[in-house]
Design a protein around this nucleic acid. Structure first.
Lengths: 219, 219
DNA sequence: ACAGACTTAAATGTATACACTCAAGCCCGG
DNA sequence: CCGGGCTTGAGTGTATACATTTAAGTCTGT
């Protein structure tokens, strides 16, 4: 019933488990152990681990042994520095490409996104954000830049667990996204760049505050 | 005589050959063929190919078979868009870190770099650029951003072959580097960002003009 | 009792044998 | 002569056996 290659199944299984925190940071991934658990032999498992290593989801631990890489607040700042560099550039480039119709429609959708959040249709909202990212990727039309963005988004998916879904924040995020979409629609590269910077600044600040209160609660 | 792991040897051999254009873009890399040629078995060779795939130096060709990825002018523009996004951010962050002494020394070295180029000590000049990049990486102190930069620099190394060593251009590049180093030394993030953008713009323009004349000559 | 070296076991690194898929070439039929 | 299906082979995907390295634990000698 699973798809073709054993190495793909192993990769996707491990990747999902890491992103969903079912495999916690620091977990040791022994080859024989994981191969037995996932029902594949060591050869395809090693290929899966290679890909995860390239993704930065696992890292070599002092010469011998692979462990799930860390994903705590200290990593978030650096990740957001990279994210800001890439996404501001991508937004500006998308604006320069002048594909107004797609982003006009997305801007209208973000205008109504507060309703989605209010009605607790969070999946629909996250889907909208995903389509927005895909529209930017398509407009940028730059494999190297889009590839770098994909890597960053992978790690962000794991961090999202740190910032619980906060409806008030999501409503503000929707407004920020709307502004970006409108700037791209209007071909205003500088505004798109700055609106993206503002959005990411607010997003990082929210995550840092949320994790700070988490620490307080768990004392 | 070579270092420990067979997979490392295979990876470094193939990587060097690709970067030096001894393996041309489009070359098919059969597993048994390359394993025999490099004197390793298929298992470590496959790991080497996995890493090259992650680096973007090889790519899957329509389902079956790996080939050396392309590296022509059409790829250069996109690569420089990514490079500009990353290096302007890195330069600005390095300036904010305010480690003046390192960049003060580098600025002085770039001041005398025209002499190196004039005396045809190009290796010494390239070494200086490498140390400059390493100083920025160390100041940025951001594994995610530095990792992305490493990937870009790998591809740039392959493209450098497209732009032949032009002493006049290198002298101007040294002056541009000097300006960046001085801006970082002075903690002027915005100037560091803009000076980097200027340098990359000039560098891209030079490559595009060089390749255009190459095309003309080879008719 | 402590330090150092040796043993041993577990985990990774490597090689090879086997299975399976896909593609190209050939043969047969219309 | 052309088209379709089958055969065959090359090459990748997987499993497993073997080699090697490293780290931990113990034992012995001082």
């Amino acid at each position: 019933m699973p798809s073709g290659r054993a190495s793909d199944r192993a990769y996707e299984s491990l990747r999902d488990e890491i992103l969903q925190w079912r495999l916690a940071p620091g977990t040791v991934l022994g080859e024989v152990e994981q191969a037995a658990r996932l029902g594949v032999s060591r050869t395809p498992l090693r290929e899966a681990l290679s890909r995860l290593l390239a993704d930065g989801l696992v890292e070599a631990q002092s010469g011998r042994g692979l462990v799930v890489s860390s994903a705590d607040v200290s990593d978030v700042r650096g990740l957001f520095e990279l994210r800001a560099a890439l996404e501001t550039a991508a937004a500006a480039l998308a604006a320069e490409r002048r594909e107004a119709s797609v982003f006009s429609a997305l801007a209208a959708e973000f205008e109504g996104a507060a309703l989605l959040v209010g009605r607790h249709e969070l999946d629909a909202y996250y889907d909208l954000v995903t389509r927005f990212d895909e529209a930017i990727d398509a407009s940028v039309a730059n494999p190297a830049l889009v590839g770098a963005l994909r890597g960053v988004r992978t790690h962000l998916q794991r961090i999202r667990r740190l910032a619980q879904d906060d409806p008030a924040r999501l409503e503000r995020a929707a407004a920020e996204h709307r502004l970006i979409a409108e700037a791209i629609r209007d071909g205003d590269a500088e505004l798109a760049r700055h609106a993206t910077a503002v959005h990411l600044h607010a997003s990082l600040r929210h995550i840092l505050e949320a994790t700070a209160s988490d620490t307080k609660e768990s004392r």
